[in-house]
Structures are given as C-alpha cells and as structure tokens.
Design a protein around this nucleic acid. Structure first.
Lengths: 226, 226
DNA sequence: GGCCAACAATTGCGATCACAATGCAAGGCC
DNA sequence: GGCCTTGCATTGTGATCGCAATTGTTGGCC
C-alpha cells in the first residue's frame, strides 16, 4: 500500500474509501461480521491493505447509517447488537418504504427490467437449492433493489438501502437458526407478475408479503435467543 | 487550533468533529447555508478555526445523511438543490415516521415532559411574534424532538433526525417567500393536549396535521420558484 | 479584440506522525 | 492465593504533508 497507485480517471475508478465502504457494507449485508464483536480501524485497515484513513471515512458513513455503532464512552466501534426493539422498528420502517418503492416502480417497469429480474430470481433460486447463504443474500438484495431503483425516488431509495444495511446481521441469524430452507418461500414470482402487469398495488402487496414473512422468521429467530 | 487541549473527561467534552458536525447541522436546519452553493473543506475549517480533518469527518456524516451532496465528477460538495420530487418524498417519509413517533411517545409522556413542551412552545410563539426565523426553527425543532425522544425508538428517531436535516433548507425557502407569518398556525397545542391525556392516536393526528400543513406551505413555495 | 493555452491557486484524498485515553496483562503487595 | 497497581500495547483523534486533479486567471497569439 506504499504503492504509488497510478492515477486514473475519477468516474471509472472509485476512491479507496468508497471501496472500503463497499467491502464493509458487503460484509455487513451478508452478515460476515457478527453483531456485538468489536472492530478497530487499524485492524480493518490492515485486513484490507490500506491506511487507517480511508477506513475512518468509510466507518463514519456506516456509523451515520447506523450500520455500525460506536460506544460513546470508549469510542470503540462494533456491530450493533440484535434486539427485539431494533428489529421491530426496522420491520415497521421497511414495511412502509419498500412496498411504496415497489408500487412506484410498477408503472415504470419495462421488458428489460422484467428480464433482469427473472435472471436475478433464477440466481436466488440457485443459491437456495445450493444452500449458499452469501450468494442468496447478495442475489436477494439485487432483486429487491433492481425494483426499487426503478421507482426513481432517490430519497426513499437511500432510506431503504440504510435499512437493509441494518437488517443484514439479523438475516444471518435467521440462517444460523432455521437453515437455508427457512427462507424458501418468497413472493418474488408474485412481485414479478404484478410488475409485468404494471399493477402498482399488486407489487406493493407482493413486496409487503415478502418482507413480512421474512421479518416474521427473523423475529422468532431473535426471540429464540438473539 | 494548535492549542494542546487541556485534559478532560470524554463524556462531557465532545470531540471536535462532533462540534463541527453540530455547527454545520445547525446551519443547515436553520437554513443558513443556501442550497446550490458550493462549500469546501478548507474554507469550512478556516471559518470554524479547526483543521480540515474533523471537518472531513463531519462532512462524511452529513453526506451519508444526505444533508450535503457531493458532485461525483468534481467531488466538490454543496447543499442539495430543492426539487419538487425531493420535497414530495421527504414529506411522505416524515408523514409516516413522525406521527408514529408521537403516538409511541404519548403513553410515556409525564408531567415533566408536558412542562418542558409548554416552555418550548412558549419560545416558539415568542420567536414567531418577533419574526426571528432562526429562533423559531430551533425552537420548533426542539419541540418536535422532545416528543420524539420520548418514544424510545432510536432507529425511527434517527430517521426522523435525518429527514429534518434534509428538509431544513426547504423551510428557509418558505420563510423567504411567505414571511414568518406563514407558519403561525401550528398544531402544538393540540399535540400537547393529546400527550397530556396519553392519547396516542390524538398525538398521531396532531403531529400529522402539523407536518402536513407545513409541508403544504413548502410545496407551494417551491413550486412558486424554488 | 477575442480565443486558447499555460500557469497558479484551490480542493479532495490518502499517508504518516503525535498524543491522550483506554484496555490488557503481568507482577508486586497484603 | 486474591486483589490492586503498574507498565505496555492498542485505539481513536487531530495535525501536517504530499499528490493529483480541477478551477480560475492571466498572458500570449492570431
């Protein structure tokens, strides 16, 4: 990392702190970083092969998005612990924002989006049959946000992104307790049909049902001993 | 700022980047920073008398909260511009989250909170009669969040905080166009009554009405030429 | 006189260093 | 042997420096 790092155009070459952000973000979404454990700037920096500085920047963003928590006394940072109260609030927020995004996306859904979603959904199913947790979570995330991005509502979209970031660690708990089979029943097909028909309310209902079922499973998993 | 910083406990002495964050946050909430104008780290640092470093940290947080925007090409930062689409999304998000927080706070409202709210509301009225815009906005913010904090829902609370940060510049536009008289009709008394009675649904309705009237005014102001 | 190229100033990003505070563990004292 | 204290390693924070890229300006050329 003392490498001089040949300079490159800005657009196609994201800054280091953005790469670090994405790395930690992916680790959180897929639940690779367990809740409660403490992480340090320097350890993260060493692990990613960069200086502590861009890690500081990335961590600031993640703390602002509540994807990481910082102990006010120690100033030491960790992944927020999974409490029932947190999950309940995150569920409620998701259940409002994400169906709304799906409803807004419905009238804008074109053939290209449908085709993309079908591809992603096939990937989701593949990951499920293989029991590949990381792959499932990544594909599921892509499926939902491919829809949401079509809503052309950047404020709500970023809120949804923040919520997924916070819910990621919970999802890993679900898989840890009920196994990959526990999430087989999704409403992706239903959502796809509604989008294809341009049915906003149908898309809203489908996503709401999909979320609701997933969050219910998380709830019982957390109550079982989160 | 080469001052050595006399040793002090951490809790009662916030870090510099937190102070910077609060300073910029206040400037945004009260609308002292106009939308569209560009700011630089070094200029902010010089203005606040600190090094660019804590300003970077504060700006990262604000960008993550979408209170500041960063041009992907220049990487130069500015206050997000006021568009009708943005306002509409912010309105919808606020209209869901804030009444919910008020409803959750209602059963927890005690005499001390009521008294505090009465004091703040008097301050709001004073600011209104004086036509002191900054003072009104600060007091109004304190009124709402004194309620919301009682909901004991930290996830939703932080979401509400982020929304106020984004809506701040819009509020200044309202005052600029309709004058301080335009916001005289608030529903604070109604909300206070509902909280005193522990009436969750009443508090929800009062806050929803308060928000909705304010957002309507902003909408016409923005459409008039934001 | 107007346009373009080269120069200078500014800006964001990343690295490194310094420092105070905390956490941790080994060692001494009762 | 158990508890406290002392010492060292680690951590977050802030400052300063260097670099590359962009911006604003000035000078020269046609």
């Amino acid at each position: 990392m003392s490498e001089p790092r040949s300079r490159r155009a800005l657009a196609d070459n994201p800054a280091v702190h953005d790469q670090v952000y994405e790395a930690i973000r992916q680790a959180l979404i897929t639940g690779r970083i367990a809740p409660g454990v403490g992480v340090s700037l320097r350890s993260l920096a060493a692990e990613l092969g960069v200086s502590p500085m861009p890690v500081r920047d990335a961590v600031r963003r993640l703390v602002a998005e509540r994807a990481l928590a910082i102990n006010p006394a120690n100033k030491r940072l960790s992944v927020p612990s999974l409490t029932a109260a947190r999950l309940e609030q995150l569920s409620q927020a998701r259940l409002w924002i994400e169906p709304e995004l799906a409803a807004r996306a419905a009238p804008r859904a074109d053939a290209a989006l449908i085709k993309l979603l079908q591809t992603i959904d096939a990937e989701v199913d593949t990951a499920l049959t293989l029991g590949d947790v990381d792959r499932y979570m990544t594909a599921n995330h892509r499926f939902h946000f491919a829809i949401y991005e079509r809503a052309e509502a950047d404020v709500l979209l970023s809120m949804a992104g923040g919520l997924w970031l916070q819910i990621g660690p919970f999802m890993r708990v679900v898989f840890g307790r009920v196994g990959a089979d526990g999430l087989v029943a999704d409403r992706h097909a239903e959502a796809l049909g509604a989008l294809k028909a341009g049915d906003a309310e149908g898309a809203r209902r489908a996503i709401a049902a999909d979320l609701s079922e997933g969050m219910d499973k998380m709830r019982v998993a957390v109550e079982a001993g989160g």
